[in-house]
Design a binder for these strands. Structure first.
Lengths: 151, 151
DNA sequence: TTAATTTCTAAACCTAACTTTAGGTCAAGG
DNA sequence: CCTTGACCTAAAGTTAGGTTTAGAAATTAA
């Protein structure tokens, strides 16, 4: 409730390590909603430090910003995650992570079977399994990722 | 040596599943170097099917196109990998993959230790370890990835 | 021989997640 | 009061890995 509860964007930047421009960008993406002081400058609560920390951690787990926004939006009153919220969320993050690890480990197993084979035959080689490709826009040939080109 | 050894870009596209535009793009990135017929059209060898297969597989291992180019460039005569080359290369790819898996597994271990904690304190939380961040341009706050912004 | 495919180049566009820039406003210290 | 330094917005730029488009030339099929 004290005056120092209200952080400027620069102060929040220092506390979280995020660039000021990144914080504004997250706002544009609907991840955080500060209010404004009479002069039009953004003012944040202390809880927003945790909110942004959550965003950064969730990114490490491979969530996109829209996905993170949804997780946050599902919290009652769109609040910053409490320890109780965090418990539920982290179980989901773990599933996310497990899947990524699993995919990579299968790839590794296949590689072990292929060392020395060198066939690189696309129809036959277990190493080339499009189903296992990490799905992401902007990386890797999209054609093979289920997004066929026009011609 | 027969005439059918010389593939057009469309034929190569069908054999590899890559879009024609992707093949041209790889050429611009120095991953493949076809010669031209009298009319100026690209002509490829059969070995180029394997070369592109290698590119696709290496991408799954998380190598960037410049990295793949270097691997290929290290081969004598910049040739397409033979089974012998492949053996050496695949041992390197495995190390690459092991590291990625290791990073994710450490993240998972930390998450397990944190479920129910919910502190989300950046200075203290093991979940927030910038060293473990996947390094990639265009994703994630660059500031924390060692690429400090101007202001 | 003509029509239909392919192919060619160069440049613009796409996504995600930001950063940079330009031109102006606000706030705090001396 | 005045000068910094922090902040504001909107738009454009960045990166990787491609795709799309436009207009022209080559090739193939009928």
């Amino acid at each position: 409730m004290a005056v120092r509860e209200r952080l400027s964007i620069g102060a929040l930047s220092k506390r979280t390590g995020l660039a000021v421009s990144a914080i504004r960008y997250y706002e544009a993406q609907g991840l955080i909603s500060p209010w404004r002081n009479p002069g039009g400058q953004r003012r944040y609560q202390r809880a927003d430090i945790r909110r942004l920390s959550f965003v950064m951690i969730a990114q490490q787990f491979g969530l996109t910003l829209p996905e993170i926004r949804e997780v946050l939006a599902d919290l009652p009153g769109n609040r910053t995650p409490t320890p109780q919220d965090w418990k539920k969320i982290s179980i989901n993050l773990r599933a996310h992570l497990d899947q990524r690890i699993d995919t990579l480990m299968r790839l590794r197993d296949n590689l072990d079977g292929c060392i020395g084979c060198g066939c690189l035959s696309l129809p036959k080689c277990a190493l080339y399994n499009p189903d296992d490709r990490a799905k992401s826009y902007g990386s890797g040939p999209r054609y093979l990722m289920g997004d066929a080109p026009k011609t």
